[in-house]
Nucleic acid binder design. Structure first.
Length: 111
DNA sequence: TGGTTGACGACAT
DNA sequence: CATGTCGCCAACC
């Protein structure tokens, strides 16, 4: 199981109307310093609620196409998520995921 | 292998 | 608050 597969699997667990941050997901995966890699994994993700992942500020991260950012915000608002000053109100909409133990003590992914 | 590339994040200015 | 810098790390080539 690749890191990317683990990320997508976790993102699928984020319920409608909630969001998670890249760093949060990385931590839940047992890789607290891989926030950036989580973003990479999400770059080409289909079939997963990718729009429910925002940055540590609650903002929508930049990417190649600006339209993608617009889309993300719209999708989130359609789920009832509220933005304030361009950011998701994390204290209210952050998903509290469960810590997974997908990694063995030698750092290799289980699976 | 080894270098490059980002949908990151913590800090400094 | 807005930028810039720097460390990080999985994927890709």
């Amino acid at each position: 199981m690749s890191f990317r597969a683990a990320v997508l699997k976790l993102v699928k667990k984020i319920p409608r109307g909630r969001v998670a941050t890249y760093g949060q997901l990385a931590t839940l995966l047992g890789r607290p310093r891989s926030a950036r890699a989580v973003g990479q994994a999400l770059r080409r993700a289909d079939g997963v609620p990718w729009h429910r992942v925002v940055n540590a500020q609650g903002g929508i991260s930049r990417r190649s196409r600006m339209s993608g950012m617009m889309t993300q915000r719209i999708l989130l608002e359609q789920e009832g998520i509220v933005f304030r000053r361009g950011r998701v109100v994390l204290v209210r909409f952050r998903w509290q995921g469960r810590r997974l133990n997908l990694f063995r003590n030698d750092g290799i992914l289980r699976g």
